[in-house]
Design a binder for these strands. Structure first.
Lengths: 351, 351
DNA sequence: GATAACGGCTAAATGGTTTTAGGTGTCCTA
DNA sequence: TAGGACACCTAAAACCATTTAGCCGTTATC
């Protein structure tokens, strides 16, 4: 009836009830009974009673003492972007199975926010970091490296910093896409990307440029300013497309640009691919189901997630071992998924 | 050159360097200098030195001592679902500004996983919970309520448990959608939902049923088994649509069902809305941009997030005050966004 | 002149665990 | 019978902060 809060059970309570020391309880609970020569009889009693009262050690105290939190900090650009959401979900699943918990945060590509998030993770002593780095956070990443905390970057990396990272060969993807468009007979291909200097964006641009150079064709590149103002983004892209009616194909360097692009194309009343062929970097339900279905450069999300978590867990295991764990740089290959939006043949609804 | 790890600065280091006690440092850092009558001179010296060396208190130790972590545990069904991703993102943003950090996890509607996650949050002493409850977790939620930890449920609730919750009047949404379809002249409307007994799903079904009852029309309801096997889901929905060719309209009770639905409809070669009108519960980029654009029952995501976080922060503020903080049950109203997929008129591309 | 009030600070308890360096008692061996 | 070996357990330090009670010297009060 009263508002009395039932006190949590402590290791102390267990120990005094069983008339043993707290050390004994702790050792048993941490599976060190054998090596500390706790008799099976005592170990059993402890286990039984702990089970009975449902005692769970206070993780804060535990972490304070051991320095391990079994938590991994995951810093992505935007958790509501399906690419990151999917990778995050896969990483979380894998980590969970191996006893690690993930705490996510979104940076919105904002340098200040990213710094704050990393700082927060540091204060909370996460055991490892998975970071999609935004620009200008070299110092912060250096700081965590100096502390020897296992870290893996993905999607892009910070040139000059010796980190593990998993990236996708974006140039390969856009090169293949451009080649494909050329083969289909499109000759005036535009490329829409962001104004950011992040490595992955530069790579994607490079693949497109290389393909066109090889064919000695002119390049039409638009770098739109990334902003939270979606109206402005849409307007920018729309204006670009409108001004470049000579273009017969367009490649968007990332999923959200493509989404605005499709909206702009629809608003302009252009038809895909008759008036304008489209290829998007990143896959998305929308692209798969759009009419016509949009050709995409799909990133190997499962593989990204698997590599990230494997490398991180490996490092976590071999902590405090050899002085210099070898850095791993993994480059995965994207897949061009050809759909109707980029083929010249008549669009027929396939079975 | 050596692997020597630079030791973190501790409050001790600050104190001894400044020749004051650690209590002084702590008081200054926690803004209690005035009330503890620390002289401005000392306070300034402390602040200056702390700034200089970049000292950050160990949050684990702090939390252990104070019992506050300033972390809120957010348990959603699936972070890669745009509805949850968006709400989570909005909640995170608000919480961040007010000094709280969010840690997310996805339950996949799996009872066991949900229990584990709640247990993990308990062990880590989160200050509050935001939960999208899956079925069968009444006990676990009861346990955290008993501990007086502020908690808010959203999207659905657990009947019988006295909790704060924010829900959307799904029945209102599906009722309006059904009415709209009837007004457009569709007379044989099907409803596709999941086999789960969660409150929000039941509500949505109820709105549809009520509308048809009022018009004394027959109901065609399909409850598909929710599964991670997307092929099976697609096949189920496809089979249902195929068997019910008499239906001229269909309402899907949640976004991912609609996505499979659209895929199935395309595979069957049916045209929207000529052969089959479509309405989806939940909005999505895909629905907005699909051809034809899909009519949706949009949930007020901003409002959901705002209510959730406001109520939670309010409770966190008034902790340990009055005995019984009044439970808040907020019911928000969804909006029917009419698009071409559910109107009988000729589809024209609007400007 | 004794008492109170206050300003300015600190010692020490506290939070809940892990882990190391022994302490006891029993038995075996030379 | 002294010495070691061993089995079984425990006291206490450590992790790093917050916070309470109180110390000491000065000044105001009656």
């Amino acid at each position: 009836m009263s508002g009395k809060v039932k006190k949590r059970t402590l290791i102390n309570d267990i120990a005094s009830h069983l008339q043993v020391s707290i050390a004994t309880v702790s050792l048993v609970l941490n599976g060190k009974a054998k090596q500390s020569r706790i008799s099976d009889a005592v170990a059993q009693r402890v286990l039984a009673y702990v089970e009975e009262v449902g005692y769970k050690p206070n993780q804060l105290a535990k972490s304070l003492r051991t320095g391990k939190t079994h938590v991994i900090g995951l810093v992505v650009e935007d958790i509501s972007n399906p690419f990151f959401a999917t990778v995050a979900w896969l990483i979380e699943k894998q980590a969970f199975e191996r006893g690690y918990r993930i705490i996510y945060c979104s940076t919105d590509n904002n340098t200040e926010k990213t710094k704050e998030l990393i700082s927060m993770f540091r204060e909370r002593h996460v055991d490892g970091y998975i970071i999609v780095p935004s620009e200008g956070i070299e110092e912060d990443v250096e700081a965590i490296l100096r502390e020897q905390t296992p870290t893996v970057l993905f999607d892009r990396y910070l040139p000059g910093l010796p980190t593990n990272h998993i990236v996708v060969d974006g140039a390969e993807g856009t090169y293949a896409a451009t080649q494909h468009l050329l083969e289909q007979g499109f000759a005036n291909i535009a490329f829409v990307t962001t104004d950011s200097a992040q490595t992955q964006m530069e790579e994607r641009l490079r693949g497109y440029a290389r393909a066109l150079e090889e064919h000695q064709l002119p390049q039409t590149v638009k770098r739109v300013e990334v902003t939270k103002d979606s109206d402005k983004l849409l307007a920018d892209i729309l204006a670009f497309i409108d001004k470049n009616r000579a273009c017969d194909a367009i490649i968007f360097s990332t999923n959200y640009l493509s989404i605005y692009g499709l909206e702009a194309i629809a608003k302009l009343g252009l038809r895909i691919p008759t008036d304008l062929a489209v290829v998007s970097y990143d896959d998305h339900d929308l692209f798969r189901l759009y009419t016509p279905a949009i050709t995409v450069i799909a990133q190997p999300v499962e593989s990204i997630a698997k590599n990230v978590i494997d490398i991180l867990l490996e490092e976590l295991k071999h902590r405090a071992d050899k002085p210099a764990p070898p850095m791993q740089h993994v480059v995965l290959t994207p897949t061009l998924v050809v759909r109707q939006s980029s083929v010249r043949s008549r669009e027929e609804v396939a079975t």
